[in-house]
């Protein structure tokens, strides 16, 4: 914080590097198109710099930055909606029950209803033998990134804030204006899809 106010470019670069991918993901769920999302993120950083002296530290710096982002995205989203006809650009998963229904694990992995072991694994998941340096593996990062980018916008925004940025549930609810239950559903569905992508990757590895 102090470093930032003092004009420490290194500190700013670090913060930008750490927050911007998640900011893009959150903005992408609110405004149409990657270009507009990037503009929203740039505008946010300018607003952050301008407002830095007024930041009082009552919220975490990240919560504050994402709050500004959402305000700018809201304004921008409203403007775009008026000027650009786009019916499909807005996410359908923000609150739509249809995208939140249904199991997150393939029902084919459990014994079917009406059988003696109904609801139990037909074949249990096999523990992952992740290499010790899994966190550094380029392959795994690429797969993870792809799985994260492929999530529906609402899930992607929540997973970014919760699991990439490490914010807690209450902070994410406040930033995205979500009910706790809704936040949890989006997070759970997103995580389950990413877990599946990792499992697919691990299983295709030659033994």
């Amino acid at each position: 914080m102090r470093a930032l106010r003092g004009g420490d470019e290194q500190a700013f670069a670090e913060l930008v590097g750490r927050l911007t991918p998640s900011m893009l993901a959150v903005a992408a769920g609110r405004v149409p198109g990657r270009t507009v999302a990037e503009e929203v993120v740039q505008e946010t950083w300018l607003a952050v710099l301008t407002g830095l002296d007024r930041f009082e530290g009552r919220s975490s710096l990240r919560t504050w930055v994402f709050g500004i982002l959402l305000n700018i995205a809201r304004t921008r989203g409203a403007r775009e909606r008026r000027s650009v006809p786009f019916s499909s650009a807005f996410p359908t998963d923000q609150a739509g029950p249809q995208a939140q229904a249904g199991p997150t694990v393939d029902p084919g992995r459990f014994h079917p209803p009406g059988t003696p072991w109904s609801g139990h694994w037909t074949a249990v998941p096999q523990p992952w033998e992740l290499p010790e340096n899994a966190l550094l593996s380029h392959e795994i990062r690429t797969r993870l990134r792809a799985a994260l980018d492929a999530l529906p916008p609402g899930q992607r925004a929540v997973v970014h804030l919760r699991d990439v940025q490490g914010l807690d549930a209450a902070e994410v609810c406040a930033i995205l204006d979500l009910e706790p239950g809704n936040q949890r559903v989006l997070l759970h569905r997103g995580r389950a899809r990413i877990r599946q992508a990792l499992e697919d990757y691990i299983h295709e590895e030659p033994a």
């Binding site: 966190l135 993870l144 990439v164 995580r191 389950a192 877990r195």
Partner: peptide, 13 residues
Amino acid sequence: QMRQTIRLTGALA
């Protein structure tokens, strides 16, 4: 595996 998923996702930051 869900815990591992969360941990790995965190490394993307």
